[in-house]
Design a protein around this nucleic acid. Structure first.
Length: 208
DNA sequence: TCTAGGATCGGCT
DNA sequence: GCCGATCCTAGAT
């Protein structure tokens, strides 16, 4: 496979510019499909091509942490400028990564739920465990954060800055609408009608 | 302080 | 497919 070379090429591509995150979360979510998130640590480089995301719309979205204008220490990053990482801890044990969307003051974000490794396979496997099946390495928000060694310490990292240790590049891969499946978001049954909004975007959506 | 509940995962049936 | 783990977060007291 030339998967490895493709990954190397991705790393040298330009970062996705901040303007790309200025749009409403729903639009940003669609746009993030097919981009590559790059994580650099002392261990080396790990990168994933994103194939599953969800939009959280902000103060009018009952499923969002900032619903109703809630503003706490945890969600502070969501209120800031777009193109930064919002990382939080869920169920007391897993981390979830989001990209802040919309202008500063509009606390919306895109939850990064899954991707396919394109670089740093060895690092990712070491972090996730030797007996984990290949398809289970990075197909969920908690798994993805473990694979990229992301915790609250990386909250507010600038995704547009190649030196931040966590950034997203656009390597020109086009994801046609025909290959994108929209579904309701996962795990938000408490959110009433919003639980039915089709804000989850899956590329080549054969996982449901 | 106390309490309820959660944008999940992995093991087991 | 179902269920328990596990503890932080936020709002209430």
């Amino acid at each position: 496979m030339n998967e490895h070379r493709a990954g190397d090429r991705a790393l040298n591509r330009p970062v996705l510019e901040r303007d790309a995150y200025l749009a409403p979360a729903e639009e940003v979510a669609r746009r993030l499909l097919g981009t590559v998130i790059v994580r650099t640590t002392d261990d080396g480089v790990a990168a994933l091509r994103l194939n599953e995301v969800e939009a959280y719309l902000g103060i009018d979205d009952p499923a969002a942490h900032t619903y109703g204008g809630r503003r706490t220490q945890r969600t502070e990053t969501m209120w800031g400028p777009p193109g930064h990482a919002y990382i939080y801890l869920i169920y007391g044990l897993h981390h979830c990564l989001n990209a802040v969307a919309g202008p500063a003051g509009t606390p919306a974000a895109v939850l990064i739920r899954g991707g396919v490794p394109v670089e740093g396979h060895e690092i990712i496997r070491a972090r996730r465990g030797e007996k984990v099946r290949a398809m289970d390495l990075t197909n969920g928000p908690g798994k993805l954060c473990q694979a990229l060694a992301l915790t609250r310490a990386e909250d507010s990292s600038d995704l547009c800055d190649r030196n931040s240790g966590l950034y997203i590049v656009d390597d020109g891969v086009d994801v046609p609408d025909a290959e994108v499946k929209r579904t309701p978001r996962i795990g938000i049954d408490y959110a009433g009608e919003a639980a039915t909004w089709p804000l989850r975007f899956v590329w080549r959506g054969d996982e449901g």
